Simulated assay, not measured.
Amino acid sequence: MQWADPFIALTVAATVTKTIKLGTGVCLLPERDPLMTAKVVASLDLLSRGRVILGVGAGWLKEETEIMGTKFNQRWKRLRETVEAMRVLWTEPAASYDGELVHFPAVRCEPQPVQYPGPPILLGGLGPKVMARVVRSYDGWYPFVSGPDAFEKDMVTLRALADEAGRDPGSIQVTAIIDPRDGAVTADELKRYRDAGASRVVVYSQQTRQEDADGKGLEVVKRSAAIVERARSL
């Protein structure tokens, strides 16, 4: 499959749009340099006038993670430290960070993003461990969901974890990834996602993933248009 770099692709999208959000789904931060990634994301946020949402993940393929310089059993720590470091770079005029895996002396990172204290960072993944990480360190959660029933149960767990940690559950942005089923997602299903706590939904599946990689993304968009219209009517 042919995959473009997400930030180059989103820069192209930014030049021909005005209002849509520009999100990664997901960017594997343990495989990227924190300083360069912070600058790229900030530049995209500046040029798009504050439309970036940064979906991130730790990765699952050991060989890929380690080829890119991170030990597989340290990927979650590397992810958290990279996120912390980028937030410092986006908010301080002379930023430094001294973590176990990520560290650099005082540097300037310009331009600064439009959004303050930076674009929202959503963690992709499933399960209680991922949700606990979301509550501790991230602006939001970005899960694949199998349907409204499962999502409603997961949101009960997420809210309980947030309450236990002393965090307002309403401060957690939730973007649910749902199978578009060729446009057959109903208005009732969309309402249930919204009422359960989804800030937005992204229509995506293994089928659309393959089509997108094969250059048929516009066909996917056309088939999903009915879902957008149903969401607008809610």
Results as ranks from 00 to 15, higher is better:
Tyr204Val: 11
Ala198Ser: 09
Val130Gly: 00
Val174Gln: 02
Lys21Arg: 14
Gly55Thr: 06
Ala226Trp: 02
Ser146His: 12
Gly99Glu: 03
Gly183Lys: 05
Gly166Pro: 06
Lys222Asn: 14
Gly124Gln: 05
Leu158Met: 11
Arg108Glu: 13
Asp182Lys: 08
Leu46Ser: 08
Thr19His: 14
Val83Ala: 10
Ile8Asn: 12
Ala165Arg: 07
Ala198Thr: 02
Tyr193Arg: 04
Asn73Val: 14
Asp168His: 09
Leu123Pro: 01
Glu63Ile: 14
Pro30Phe: 07
Val52Ile: 14
Pro6Gly: 13
Leu158Lys: 01
Lys222Ile: 15
Asp139Pro: 05
Ile227Cys: 02
Leu234Phe: 09
Arg75Val: 06
Asp195His: 10
Glu31Thr: 14
Val56Gln: 02
Lys216Ala: 08
Val201Thr: 07
Ser205Ile: 01
Gln115Trp: 10
Leu234Cys: 11
Glu63Trp: 12
Gly118Cys: 08
Thr11Asp: 15
Ser205His: 07
Asp45Pro: 03
Ala150Ser: 15
Glu66Phe: 11
Cys27Thr: 11
Gly23Ile: 03
Phe72Leu: 09
Glu92Ser: 12
Glu110Val: 13
Glu164Trp: 02
Met36Lys: 11
Glu63Pro: 01
Glu92Leu: 09
Arg209Pro: 01
Met155Pro: 04
Val41His: 02
Arg192Ser: 04
Pro180Thr: 05
Pro120Met: 07
Pro34Asp: 07
Lys153Glu: 15
Ala42Gly: 07
Leu22Ile: 10
Arg49Ala: 15
Val56Lys: 00
Tyr193Thr: 03
Gly50Ser: 13
Leu126Cys: 12
Gln207Asn: 07
Arg167Asn: 03
Gly217Ser: 12
Gly217Trp: 09
Gln74His: 15
Arg136Trp: 04
Lys71Pro: 12
Pro120Val: 07
Pro169Gln: 10
Thr91Arg: 06
Pro105Trp: 15
Val228Trp: 10
Leu54His: 00
Glu63Gln: 12
Ala85Lys: 01
Ser96Lys: 14
Leu123Asp: 00
Ile53Asn: 02
Gly147Ser: 11
Leu101Ile: 11
Thr208Tyr: 06
Leu122Lys: 00
Glu84Thr: 00
Asp45Glu: 13
Tyr116Ile: 11
Val107Lys: 14
Trp90Pro: 00
Ile178Asn: 00
Val220Cys: 12
Lys129Tyr: 15
Ala187Asn: 01
Tyr138Ser: 05
Thr65Trp: 01
Gly197Lys: 00
Thr186Asp: 08
Ala165Lys: 05
Asp214Gln: 13
Asp33Lys: 09
Asp182Trp: 08
Ile121Met: 09
Arg167Ile: 07
His103Arg: 15
Glu219Val: 10
Asp45His: 06
Gly124Ile: 02
Met1Tyr: 11
Thr65Tyr: 06
Ala38Val: 04
Thr17Val: 12
Asp33Thr: 11
Ala176Gly: 09
Ala42Ile: 02
Gly197Pro: 02
Gly140Met: 09
Pro30Trp: 02
Ile178Leu: 08
Pro143Asp: 03
Leu44Val: 06
Glu92Asp: 14
Gly25Ser: 12
Arg181Leu: 13
Arg80Asp: 14
Val220Tyr: 00
Pro128Arg: 14
Lys129Arg: 15
Asp214Cys: 04
Asp5Gly: 09
Thr175Arg: 06
Pro119Asn: 00
Lys21Ser: 13
